Deep mutational scan, measured.
Amino acid sequence: TTVKLGDIKVTFDNPEKAKKYAQKLAKIYQLTVHVHGDTIHVK
């Protein structure tokens, strides 16, 4: 599962960890989390 934020891409083996990371980023940057299959976009 890949978390994308602009040019930053972080890949996790564990989808749950990816989701938590995405939510953490979203909170920090006051953005929202969008899940598209294996990719989680923070924008």
Rank of each mutant, 00 (worst) to 15 (best):
I28S: 04
Y29H: 09
H41A: 06
V42N: 02
K4E: 08
Y29S: 04
L25T: 00
T32H: 07
G6Y: 08
L25P: 00
T39I: 13
Q30A: 09
H41N: 06
G6A: 06
K27G: 06
K20D: 10
V10E: 01
T39G: 03
N14A: 04
L5G: 02
A22D: 00
T39W: 07
N14I: 05
T11R: 13
H34C: 15
T2F: 07
V35P: 03
K20N: 09
T11F: 14
L31N: 03
V10Y: 09
I40T: 01
A26T: 02
P15S: 08
G37W: 06
Y29D: 03
K9M: 13
L5F: 14
K43E: 11
D13F: 08
K9H: 11
V10F: 13
V42W: 03
G6L: 07
K4S: 08
K9N: 09
K20F: 08
G37R: 04
V35R: 04
Q23S: 07
N14D: 14
K43L: 14
I8T: 07
K43F: 15
A26C: 14
V3E: 02
I28R: 13
T2Q: 05
A26W: 04
Y21S: 02
T2Y: 07
K9A: 10
I40W: 04
I40V: 06
T11N: 08
P15W: 14
I40N: 00
V35D: 07
I8A: 05
K9Y: 14
A18P: 00
K17Q: 12
I40D: 01
A18K: 00
G37T: 03
N14T: 11
Q23E: 14
G37M: 05
I8G: 02
I8Q: 04
K27I: 09
I8M: 11
K4P: 03
G6I: 07
L5Q: 02
L31D: 03
G6R: 08
D38C: 10
E16W: 07
N14E: 06
T32R: 05
V10H: 03
D13A: 10
V10R: 08
Q23N: 10
A18N: 01
G37N: 06
Y21M: 05
K17V: 11
H34I: 14
T1D: 03
